[in-house]
Amino acid sequence: MKQTKSKRRPPLIIGGQTIAAGTRAEIRLKVSETYFGDDVSIHLRVIRAKKPGPAVFVTAAIHGDELNGVGVVHELLCDPDLELVRGTLVLVPVCNVLGFEANERYLPDRRDLNRSFPGSPTGSLASRIAHTLFENVVRNCDLGIDLHTAAIQRTNYPNVRGRLADPAVKRLAEAFGAELIMNGDGPEGSFRREAGAAGCPTICVETGEPWKMEPAMVQFGVRGVRNVLIDLGMMRGEVTPPPYQTRITRNRWLRAKVGGILRFHVAPGQIVRTGQDLASNFTLLGEQRNVLSSPCDGIVLGMTTLPTVKPGEPVCHIGEPAMSLKRIEKALAVSRREQPEINRARRHLATSIHQVAPTPELGTEDASAAS
């Protein structure tokens, strides 16, 4: 595959520190101060090969409670065998340091850092942090990987998101090695959208739950970052492909129609067909009230992990793949025999969901009514 051209900008200066080719640097970017006047800083490591090549950033915890990405970057930071043959790698384990310390998704002012880019040096706390991160990391890189998890009380089956009309984003998304790829610019002010607009094509990777470093999700992320670096010629090695790879052409959340306690019939990553039971809703005393069914053939992209719901709350996220379900099932059958490690993420996520067989007494509701 044709190599991505790197921008000519020697020497590399981040946070006022010059990083020469063939060296590593630990950098702290001051983004705020405590009530005591002490510095609050984003920690990052810059690794530069002797040979020129693309500059790639990997960021995590823009939402402070999304720890799987932190685990991914931490594994890369602790890996003594991580050696670049060309280019530059910028690793940022925690972007939202204030949210991370408080185990909170947002900043202390309740603003979402992932809606605050590219930021301003004279704006709100969120805007100032975004500006510092953007100017020092994005402006110095050619490509980016931004690691996320689902929101609170939800889980996501591993997937990659990006503006696939951009060839560089498409290449990153496919090289990462996720089974599922979703097209989209991202919300206004989000890191990947604004980085792309600034000339640094960036993908968003979604894996698992917040508040956890899930081993299978971390392994998936580490493998994906390595895949990208190998594909770009920045590292030696062989790319690890997924069992299959397809775009999601449409996705939708199915929401609870009534309140109660859910009994799930599917797990993240599972193939479902039109009319298939997804979850049954029961009263506290065990009376079945209704059943949510799938309105389409698709794949379970994500689910609530909280089994109690009120009307209108999200239950199951279904994506419609471009690839036929028969082809996906055939590919998965082969991978179970030849690549058992690839299926670890699917098995892990299934353990987070209490999955039971549908109750036969109550017929499944019409899909349009259930959704």
Rank of each mutant, 00 (worst) to 15 (best):
D81V: 04
L113V: 08
T155E: 03
E174H: 13
E75S: 14
K50E: 14
G99P: 04
L133C: 10
S116H: 04
T132R: 15
E83W: 00
K51Y: 09
H148C: 03
V137P: 04
A55M: 12
T59F: 01
L147K: 08
H43I: 03
D142K: 10
A168S: 15
L76Y: 05
V73I: 11
T122H: 11
C95Q: 05
A173M: 05
F176A: 02
A130T: 10
K50H: 09
F134I: 03
R161P: 01
G99F: 05
V92T: 01
A175W: 08
V58E: 00
C78I: 04
V94D: 00
A150S: 12
L147Q: 09
A178E: 00
D146L: 08
L44S: 06
A55F: 09
R45G: 02
E83S: 12
H148V: 05
A61W: 03
I152L: 15
R161D: 06
L98M: 15
S120C: 11
L91V: 07
H43E: 14
L164Q: 10
H74K: 13
D65R: 04
I47T: 08
R48S: 14
I181F: 01
N156D: 13
A49N: 07
G87M: 06
G144N: 07
A165Y: 10
A178W: 00
L113R: 00
L76C: 11
V94R: 01
T59N: 04
R48L: 09
I145S: 01
R105E: 03
V137M: 12
A165N: 13
G64E: 02
R115K: 14
L91I: 06
A151I: 11
F117W: 10
R48H: 11
V138Y: 02
F134E: 01
V137F: 08
R163I: 11
I47E: 03
A175M: 09
R139N: 15
L98D: 00
C95V: 14
L113E: 03
N68H: 02
L84H: 05
R111Y: 07
V97Q: 03
A102R: 15
A168C: 12
C141H: 12
I129P: 00
L107F: 07
P118F: 04
H43F: 15
D112K: 08
